[in-house]
Write a protein that binds this DNA or RNA. Sequence first.
DNA 1: TACGCCAAAGCGATTACATCA
DNA 2: GATGATGTAATCGCTTTGGCG
Length: 278
Amino acid sequence: MELALSLGDTPKPFSLFENPNKGFSIVLEQAQKSLDEKRGSSDPPIQLNLLPSTPVHPSPHQIPWLNHALGVETVRVTNANRFRLASVEDTTDEGAAVSSPNSAASSFRMDFSIMNGNCDARNNSREGGVDSDDDENGSTRKKLRLSKEQSAFLEETFKEHTTLNPTQKLALAKQLNLRPRQVEVWFQNRRARTKLKQTEVDCEYLKKCCETLTEENRRLQKELQELRALKTSQPFYMQLPATTLTMCPSCERVATNTTGAAATKNTASIIAGGRHQK
DNA sequence: TACGCCAAAGCGATTACATCA
DNA sequence: GATGATGTAATCGCTTTGGCG
């Protein structure tokens, strides 16, 4: 195992002041390399890519579930008769809002009550569900809270797919005793929450990256200062020829062998006399 | 094929309301 | 009970996309 080590192989001594990146030192080269690797390039300043690595919400075309259009169609066909009332009245959101909610609710409620048992009363009183739309006088916006069961079911559905096609929206609305518009809004808001959360996570990650890089930069600056100080006090060593470090595979000690080609007699003698004891 | 129009869907921003400490 | 913070349902305006003439 050999470690090639360049100790000032530039023909011009003390060139580091002219170009600190050239023939300066092992540490600096490594540091520069390290930074360059992190940056991807040595020239531009550190640039954080703020774009999320993966799309927060995939486009509809990227959702595998949505590609099962045939399956969806099957569902639609088989449910067409069952959902006819809802389909006619709720195909559009406005239709859902304008159409008589009671007529839809009366046919929907049983499904969801079967699913979650006791939420029916709360749907009528607190959440309102489909029914309560008639109660409002139109001047004040009603705030409907979904029941835990409804939210849980929507969550489960969202885990499977983050967007709904109209058929699934209708089916879900029917199952949960909600208007299709409510289901749609819930999914929109849910997507927004997911994106917001992902943004927060990304932000935290970038913060940590920034801290790490700042710390590394500080450390490298310190090393640079130390090396500059070292060079000032011992300028002669900067003219050392390229050196090959040979690591013993058994004891993992590093032995230094100066390549004779670039070595001058002076430096060789210095190394032999002064530094080559260990 | 290119273009304009339109409807539908989705999104970001915001509002409004319910709940809780 | 009043109040501010928080969560979230709902709305609005905009952009994009696809169908159609």
